[in-house]
Design a protein around this nucleic acid. Structure first.
Lengths: 247, 247
DNA sequence: CCGTTCGGTTGACCCAAGTCAACCACGATT
DNA sequence: AATCGTGGTTGACTTGGGTCAACCGAACGG
C-alpha cells in the first residue's frame, strides 16, 4: 500500500468516525428522526469535537454560552454552587445526551459541567442550530422535545428530593442508571459508577455516609452486590418495590 | 349615544383587552422583544382565551398536549403524583408565565395544572407557534430562552430541596414570591399567599406543620408578620441572611 | 345566628438521616 | 515493597423535621 493510500484511508476513517450520520448515538441525540440529507446538514454545524480528560471542565458558571454540547462518549456531572460552599449536583449525563441548555436563558452558563471520565463531545454553535432548525422542522421539533424532556426529568428529581426517603432515592437512582445503560446497549444489571458517594449524595440530597450505608443495606438484603464503584443489580423488582412503598 | 355605537365600543374594548400588543404582561410573556407587526401575528395564534375558576384544572397528567398556555391573570400550581398518593408541587405560576412546557416531550402532559384563584389564560397552539417561530427569529429565540429559564429555575429548586434547611427554604420561597410580585407592579413587602401551608410544604419538601412553625418563628424574630394567608415582610435583609448562612 | 368544615397553629414525642470519628481498601508514586 | 492520598465503610451519638393529636379561627351554607 502506498503512503498516499494509507493517508487517505486514515482520513476517511476519521471522517466516518466523527459524522452524526455514522454515530451510533444518533437515535438518542440531536439528529433523532432526521433524513440522511438533513443529518448531513447538521453535521456541517458540528464545528468542533473535543476530548476532555477526567476532571476537566466543559464549561463553568459564568462562561458565555454560545454552543450546546452533545456527549459522544464519556460521562459528566453538572453542578451549581452557592457562595458558602454548598453545592448541588443537578445531573449526570452520558453518551447521546445534551449539555449546556441552561445557558440559553441568560447567554451565560449557570452550572458547571465536569467530565467524570475521559470523554468526547461535539460542540454545536447555538445560533447556527437555531438557524438550521428554522429550515428543518423535525430538528426544530426534536430540539423542543429534548428541552421539554429536561424539564420533565427535573420534575422527577424534585419529586425524589421532595418526597422520597433515602432508600427510595437510591433505588430510583440505580434503576435510572440501569435503564440508561440499557438504552445504550450495556448491561442493565452490571455497571461501574463513574461518580463518588459524595457526588451521588449531592445529587440525591443525602450525605455520603447515608449513601454508603444504604448501599450496604441493599447488599445485605440481596438487592445488589456492591464493591466500591462496581454495582451488580441482583433483584430489579426488589428495588422497584422499595422505590414506591408508601410509609 | 346610539345602541349601535355603544355595541361597537364594547367590542372594541374587548378586542383591545385581549390582544398581546395591549397586554400589560407582554414584557414578561411570550411576546417579549417582538416588533409591533410581529406581535400582531402572534396575536392571531392565540386562539382561545379561557377563564378558570379557583380549583379548576387547566390540564391533567395524561391529557394530550397541543398548546402552551400563558397566564393573563391569576395564579396556578403544577404538581406531579405517584401511585401511592404522594405528590410534589413542582411550581407556582403567575401572570405572564407559561404553562404546559412539560407536555412537548411526549405530547402528553406529565403534571397537573390547577388554578389557585380565578384565572384567565391564553392558549397558544404549539405547532402553530413552532411554525411562526420559524419565521420570526426573535420569537424562536425568546421561546428557547423561556424553556431554558425553566430548566434553570428547576435547578434552583433542586438546590433548595437538596441542600437547604427548613428556614432557608421558606426564606428563599418568600423572597422569590416577593421578587415576582414586584416585577408585576405589586408590593414587594405585602401580599396574600394563594396556596395553603400544605401546598407550600409540598413544594419545599416539608410538612405543613413545619411550614406553619417556621412562619411563626420568622414572626417571633421580627422578619415577617403573618396572619393566615396575609404576609408582610418586615426585614428583607434578615430573610436574605437566613437564606445562606452555612450551618 | 349557629354549626360545620377546612386550614392553620401548637405541643409532645420519635426517628431517619446528619455529624463526628475511626478505620479500611485500593491506586498511584517513589 | 513502603508510603501516601483519596474514597469508602462502619459505629456511636445528635438533631431537625416528621408524626400524632388537640385545639383554634375564619368562611360558608342552611
Amino acid at each position: 500500500m502506498s503512503p498516499q493510500n494509507s493517508q487517505l484511508k486514515v482520513s476517511t476513517l476519521t471522517l466516518v468516525k466523527t459524522a452524526c450520520s455514522n454515530c451510533n448515538l444518533r437515535e438518542l441525540c440531536l439528529p433523532f428522526g432526521l433524513e440522511p440529507n438533513e443529518m448531513e446538514r447538521l453535521d456541517t454545524l458540528v464545528s468542533s469535537r473535543r476530548r476532555l480528560k477526567r476532571g476537566e471542565y466543559l464549561y463553568r458558571v459564568g462562561d458565555t454560552f454560545d454552543a450546546i454540547f452533545a456527549i459522544r462518549s464519556g460521562f459528566f456531572k453538572t453542578d451549581v454552587l452557592i457562595e458558602d460552599g454548598r453545592d448541588q449536583v443537578t445531573g449526570f449525563q452520558m453518551g447521546g445526551e445534551l449539555l449546556g441548555l441552561d445557558g440559553i436563558s441568560t447567554e451565560q452558563h449557570t452550572c458547571n459541567a465536569i467530565a467524570l471520565e475521559d470523554s468526547d463531545i461535539c460542540a454545536i454553535p447555538f445560533s447556527q442550530m437555531e438557524a438550521l432548525s428554522r429550515e428543518i422542522h423535525s430538528l426544530q421539533h426534536h430540539f423542543h422535545k429534548v428541552m421539554s424532556r429536561e424539564i420533565v426529568r427535573d420534575h422527577g428529581v424534585m419529586m425524589l428530593l421532595g418526597t422520597m426517603r433515602a432508600e427510595e432515592r437510591l433505588a430510583a437512582f440505580l434503576l435510572n442508571l440501569s435503564q440508561r445503560f440499557t438504552a445504550r446497549g450495556y448491561s442493565h444489571a452490571e455497571f461501574f459508577l463513574r461518580m463518588t458517594r459524595e457526588e451521588i449524595g449531592s445529587y440525591l440530597g443525602l450525605k455520603l455516609e447515608t449513601v454508603s450505608r444504604t448501599f450496604s443495606r441493599f447488599q445485605e438484603d440481596g438487592h445488589i452486590a456492591v464493591q466500591q464503584k462496581h454495582i451488580r443489580i441482583l433483584d430489579v423488582n426488589g428495588l422497584k418495590a422499595l422505590m414506591n412503598r408508601r410509609n
